[in-house]
Amino acid sequence: MHPRRPTVVYVHGIGNKVRPELLKSQWDQALFGRDMAGASRMAYWAALRYEKPLPDFRPDPLDGAPVAYAESAGAAAETMTEMKESGRAAESGLFAEPEEFVALTVSEAWRECGAVGLEGRGGEGRAGPDGERAVAEGALVDWLRDMTYLAETLGSAETGGDAEGEDGGGALPLELLPLPRPVRTAVFRELARHTFRDVHAYFFGGAGPAIRGVVAKALDGLDGGPLVVVGHSLGSVVAYEVLRERGQEVELLVTVGSPLAITEVQDQLARPPAVPEGVLAWRNASDLRDLVALDHTLRPEFGPPERITDLLVTNDSGNHHGIGPYLSQPPVREPVQRIFDHLA
């Protein structure tokens, strides 16, 4: 009897995305080198937070594009210079001091939460909005601050500059975008800002149940064949929580660029950290320069450790967090392809 075909379910990460069909195709190409048709599904939750998708084939700014609609490094540098001179960059937090950037980003996240209601994790143990705010800030702001300081360091080092200068010689060999230091720093800061906003909305802004519902729906109605789940960034958190709740059998869970190892994120999980009951194997991959994955090892906290493999890989996207470079790394793609080649 021919075995039932495997299925891969993708869970995307922070920020707005292109339309779901195109996003699924992009992940298929990065992971398999071909379109997987009905053998893959995209748990597309961006529509819950963003009014309309990104335009087709525009670079995702959260994959490392210098600014949302810059067409070249020169245009990006010119835009940043104009913003800096006009003061708009300071207002947006791009060139504010790290502490000021953190304060602006936290305020922005709470204004966004206020628009949908401060529901949090069902409200347990909360003393209204003020208590909710105290819990949220204590849990996540330290992470945001660490991300911001690392953004300053990377923004300087990867263009050969120093903490005070603009740009210098001798860029690191893994540098992808030949940008001056303020622009490079802005790339990383935008990643920190969007990460915090979406994670904050997921845990404290009432967005969590609906996002988890999208993932649960994508996991329903499968034919019982081997299941692979791939989660990126915040999507790895959502995938983990849904699998932890369901206990559904998963041949392989793959998380890339994940914040799950961060203590401040673990503190907000609905259940204590552990490998979801039905997950037979878990591979967690990150780049050392990825701001979102400041801690790179899940094995110490998520037992049983023999089911988890932590991997350090190279992600040469502009901010070292982009999904395509993660999925194309052999340690990420080969175990997935083996499941499909062997069992399809």
Rank of each mutant, 00 (worst) to 15 (best):
V214H: 00
Q248T: 09
V228E: 07
S236D: 04
H194Q: 15
F204N: 12
V275R: 08
P259F: 11
G221A: 06
A261T: 01
P182A: 00
L227C: 07
Q266K: 13
L219P: 00
G221P: 01
H232G: 08
T195K: 08
G247N: 06
E241M: 00
P272A: 15
V214A: 00
T185M: 11
A261M: 06
W282F: 07
H194Y: 12
A207G: 01
V242G: 00
L222A: 02
H232M: 05
F196K: 05
R197D: 05
T195L: 11
P226G: 10
A207Y: 07
D267A: 15
R189W: 05
V279Q: 08
V230S: 06
F188L: 13
L227K: 05
H194N: 15
E245G: 04
L234Y: 00
G257S: 11
E264M: 10
E190T: 14
A192S: 06
S233T: 14
T263W: 10
V228Q: 09
R193I: 04
V250T: 01
W282N: 08
V187Y: 10
R193M: 07
A239M: 00
G257K: 15
D223H: 13
L234G: 03
Y240H: 14
Y202L: 09
P259Y: 10
S236H: 09
A270N: 06
L234C: 03
P226W: 10
A192T: 03
